[in-house]
């Protein structure tokens, strides 16, 4: 209180500085994206001359072209069809395991947990060659499943880590009272625990959706058919096809980025809550 009344100028300067930094960072964060999105609407002959000029006319032709002849519609559907099962599967498996690691007491729990955490340190590049052959043996090459199933294993360390941290912080009393009410482990999990971990699930959902949506390395190797390509793969292919056209590339980038930005904005409140409760305290 005292310091506030004493140094009003210092406080104002501090406020101004804070806002200056925040607003500058805001611009740096968003301008490249906004500029890319607007470039999608600029006629290609204008954009090819100078991609940074201020647009004088706008058109939807680029988007139409990219969407149909550039097959962005196919890529988009594939991305969705890959993301949904992948996210659901990871959420289910990790919340089950997270509950056991966080709330149940059993022999070897911590050892198994550390064994799972080991996976977080291993780069995907270190697994990709054998992984390819494993997927091939399962007959999954060139299918959307090839971009889903491996992640039930590969995404597990982070997902389990996060869910465990969250479950651990839930009070034990909840389980005890549930047990008294005649619940077994599964019904406790289903009716008592699961509803409480919504924030953690949203956070994990955003992370996993984001990774799935943007995933490139493994898909690049296991899928080469145009009908199964997801957006990032499609986008890379699309660049090869329309290298001479800045606008179409901007459209491709827009189609790839906007949906994920929307998903994030929708879930951001729960996302932050989930991160707060989960990752940090772990």
């Amino acid at each position: 209180m005292r310091s506030k009344s004493k140094k009003p100028i210092a406080v104002t300067v501090k406020k101004l500085l804070t806002y200056a930094v925040l607003i500058l960072t805001l611009l740096v964060s968003i301008m490249p994206l906004i500029w890319m999105w607007q470039a999608a609407l600029v006629p290609s002959n204008k954009l090819n001359v100078d991609p940074f000029a201020i647009p004088t006319s706008l058109t939807l032709d680029n988007i139409k072209r990219a969407w149909t002849t550039g097959k962005m519609n196919v890529y988009m559907i594939n991305s969705i069809l890959v993301a949904i099962p992948r996210v659901l599967g990871v959420l289910l498996l990790s919340s089950l395991a997270g509950y056991a690691f966080g709330k149940l007491k059993f022999k070897g729990r911590d050892k198994i947990f550390s064994f799972m955490m080991f996976g977080m340190m291993i780069p995907i590049q270190a697994m990709v060659i054998p992984l390819y052959y494993n997927l091939q043996q399962m007959g999954l090459i060139n299918t959307r499943l090839a971009m889903v199933i491996p992640y039930f294993g590969l995404s597990m360390p982070f997902a389990v880590f996060m869910m465990r941290a969250f479950f651990r912080d839930l009070p034990d009393a909840l389980i005890e009272s549930a047990t008294i009410d005649g619940c077994n482990e599964f019904t406790t999990f289903l009716y008592i625990m699961a509803p409480l971990i919504k924030p953690a699930l949203s956070a994990l959902l955003v992370f996993e959706f984001m990774w799935s949506w943007n995933d490139m390395f493994l898909p690049m190797l296991v899928v080469y058919n145009d009908t199964s390509r997801t957006l990032p793969l499609g986008l890379m292919f699309f660049f090869g096809k329309y290298t001479a056209d800045h606008s179409l590339i901007a459209v491709g980038v827009t189609i790839c980025t906007l949906p994920i930005v929307i998903v994030y904005t929708l879930f951001q409140k729960n996302f932050i809550e989930g991160v707060t409760a989960g990752a940090v305290k772990g």
Partner: peptide
Amino acid sequence: VVMKMEDLRTTIKAAINSG
């Protein structure tokens, strides 16, 4: 199946080997 030559080169051996 159309792909950039670079991608084709990366995938072809494993693809042929795996049938």
